[in-house]
């Protein structure tokens, strides 16, 4: 039987009348990459900060490494966790290698500084001051400081937000490597492609609640055999009320998304409807649904709304 490294039961955190976290429960299997996917303000960061011991919670149960924790996380558990915050800053005027050494000294065991520098590809920046690093390099250093103690569980809060595509790829590769090493990664993200690419298991969170769960494959197949017709129009602000003839549609600016379970008929119907109204179609694609569509389907909103 596989071991749960983190179990959360009915966790609640209210700010006056705002239900930031509204009774969520989940379990994280050892060695898995686990994603909490949701739009900004869904309560992902609050959840993570509670798990990191940065925030209090109102009620619920948290079991970390099989040990029930309350408010503060004892040091012996923190020694087994690596954390990458949403915003990672370091003491000024220190060199990359000095920061890694400082973090290394906080843990009783850990990795060799040289190995870590290699792993985060900052060997040539070892003696560079931290304020001279680029955004991607800083993020890699943050990952380095989280990994230097060789933790079993790694929390990452939006690890690729604000990074350029190349830097994002690098971070993804690092997370892949962690999975290969048997580490458990718990990350939050609002990029569906990130969750889809990285996560073994995804919890979709919105308004403090978990609204869906499963692997990316499972979540997508919850559509059954449905397909997505995506139509780009030339102009926007048109009267599109005729779309109500379809079961599930979503209009965003000049883009129309139609969820269909019977593609040929719906495709023909759509083309006919546009033809009748002489609405020009710029582009039309048929594709399988992705997590974005899952979220759209569940909430009627897009992830990045």
């Amino acid at each position: 039987m596989r071991e749960f490294i983190l179990e959360v039961e009915d966790l609640k955190k209210y700010y006056f009348d705002v239900k930031a976290v509204d009774g969520i429960s989940f379990k994280v299997l050892k060695g898995e990459v686990f994603a909490l996917l949701g739009p900004n303000g869904a309560g992902k960061t609050t959840t993570l900060e509670i798990l990191e011991g940065l925030k209090d919670y109102d009620s619920g149960k948290i079991r970390l490494f099989g040990e029930e924790i309350r408010r503060k996380i004892p040091r012996r558990l923190r020694e087994r966790i690596g954390v990458i915050l949403q915003e990672n800053n370091f003491v000024d005027h220190l060199k990359t290698i000095e920061i890694l050494k400082m973090f290394r000294s906080l843990y009783p065991k850990g990795l060799d500084i040289k190995d870590i520098l290699k792993e985060i590809s900052l060997e040539d920046k070892a003696n560079a001051k931290v304020e001279k690093l680029s955004g991607g390099q800083r993020q890699r250093l943050a990952i380095g400081t989280a990994l230097v103690g060789d933790p079993e569980l790694i929390f990452m809060d939006e690890p690729t937000t604000g990074l350029d595509p190349q830097a994002r790829r690098n971070v993804w590769e690092m997370i892949e490597k962690l999975r290969e090493k048997g580490k458990t990664v718990f990350l939050t993200t609002h990029y569906m492609e990130e969750a889809e690419y990285l996560a073994d298991y995804i919890y979709v969170m919105d308004h403090g609640k978990i609204i869906a769960k499963g692997s990316a494959e499972e979540l997508i197949s919850s559509f059954g055999g449905e397909k997505i017709i995506e139509i780009d129009l030339d102009s926007k602000d048109l009267d599109l009320s005729f779309l109500s003839e379809f079961q599930k549609t979503k209009v965003e600016d000049s883009k129309i998304i139609i969820v269909t379970s019977y593609l040929p008929a719906d495709m023909k119907k759509a083309l006919d409807l546009f033809e009748e109204r002489s609405i020009k179609i710029d582009d039309i694609i048929v594709r399988r649904p992705n997590l974005e569509d899952v979220f759209l389907n569940l909430t009627g909103r897009k992830l990045r709304d």
């Binding site: 800053n89 973090f103 906080l106 400081t145 103690g149």
Partner: peptide, 17 residues
């Protein structure tokens, strides 16, 4: 300053008291 820059936060999630 270190609290505002979230340097402290980064240290206290690591095993530092």
């Amino acid at each position: 300053v270190q609290r505002e820059k979230k340097v402290l936060r980064k240290l206290f999630v690591a095993p530092l008291n």
